[in-house]
């Protein structure tokens, strides 16, 4: 795993992606620190990570798009498989390399509250917990990006899938606001999700009948609940959207709460998508 980690980390800085990513995040950190803390004279650094979380919609695909798809394209996955490297080592080695690259601008940023504290009273713990929250959020998004990258051998397609997935996560709370008002819109929302699940099942199993029966089964369930207990339909749907709202979960850190359940939430997202990535690599061999 150490070998994979080292090679991956090297490859980010042999090309331009690593530098672009680090520079881009540093610039954004800088801009928000300048406008919020210097121009508007807020002593609360925690607003900076909060304000810039949308930037990860762009930076995540940049960093993660090539991570697994490139191996497939270069045929180097065969090198890894024929030398008996386990899939989990490939996935975690690469994931840790991405985290390391992402950590660089965060480490630099950790100096900002200290610098600012020379000129006023900065609530240090809240500032750092907010930076930590943003890092965790970025780490969770990278796991999603890594999974997207395991699905295809094209970087562009991987970036598009990743962007689509994290955009859905970004908008989830806004959609909740629209949907939860009526039972019918919850039904539509569920139907869309069922169709997406059906599409993925078709892609993985390559069987129309299997995917069709899955869609039918879930749809009966959703329609059934719609007629029997409409209130459950609404509350469960907004709950579901709340769960996929990866971006909004870090808000608790901005409010000065170091929430263990949020930390566990992000670690679960990382765990689940790493697991999916491993399965996706294995599937390519066993397909």
């Amino acid at each position: 795993m150490a070998a994979i980690y080292k090679r991956e980390l090297q490859s980010y800085f042999m090309g331009i992606i690593g530098y672009v990513f680090v520079a881009f995040l540093l610039v954004i950190f800088g801009i928000y620190t300048a406008t919020i803390c210097l121009t508007s004279k807020y002593a609360n650094f925690e607003y900076v990570p909060y304000a810039m979380k949308y930037v990860f919609l762009i930076t995540t695909p940049i960093l993660s798009m090539r991570v697994l798809s490139e191996e497939r394209k270069l045929n180097t996955d065969k090198l890894l498989f024929s030398t008996a490297v386990e899939s989990y080592k490939i996935v975690f080695g690469k994931y840790l390399a991405m985290l390391t690259v992402m950590a660089i601008p965060f480490i630099v940023t950790c100096a900002y509250p200290v610098i600012l504290s020379k000129y006023g009273k900065v609530p240090m713990l809240t500032a750092y917990s907010s930076i930590f929250g943003l890092f965790l959020m970025g780490a969770a998004l990278l796991a999603i990006g890594m999974f997207s990258s395991s699905l295809t051998d094209s970087q562009i397609v991987a970036a598009a899938i990743c962007f689509g997935m994290i955009l859905a996560a970004y908008l989830a709370n806004d959609i909740t606001g629209l949907v939860s008002k009526t039972v019918f819109s919850a039904l539509i929302g569920y139907t869309v999700i069922v169709l997406i699940i059906g599409g993925i099942t078709r892609y993985v199993s390559k069987s129309w009948s299997f995917a069709g029966s899955i869609v039918l089964l879930f749809e009966i369930l959703v329609v059934g609940i719609y007629f029997i207990k409409p209130s459950l339909e609404v509350s469960s749907f907004s709950g579901l959207l709340g769960t996929i709202a990866v971006f909004d979960k870090m808000d608790t850190f901005k409010n000065g709460v170091f929430d263990i359940s949020t930390v566990i939430y992000y670690l679960s997202v990382i765990g689940v998508f790493s697991f999916f990535s491993i399965q996706s690599l294995e599937k390519r061999r066993w397909g």
Binding site: R7, G15, L74, N75, D77, K78, L79
Partner: peptide, 15 residues
């Protein structure tokens, strides 16, 4: 016991 060269040489171009 095996060394394998697949159809396309599995090299990393930037190394």
């Amino acid at each position: 016991y095996i060394g394998y060269l697949p159809e396309l040489p599995p090299i990393y171009p930037d190394m």
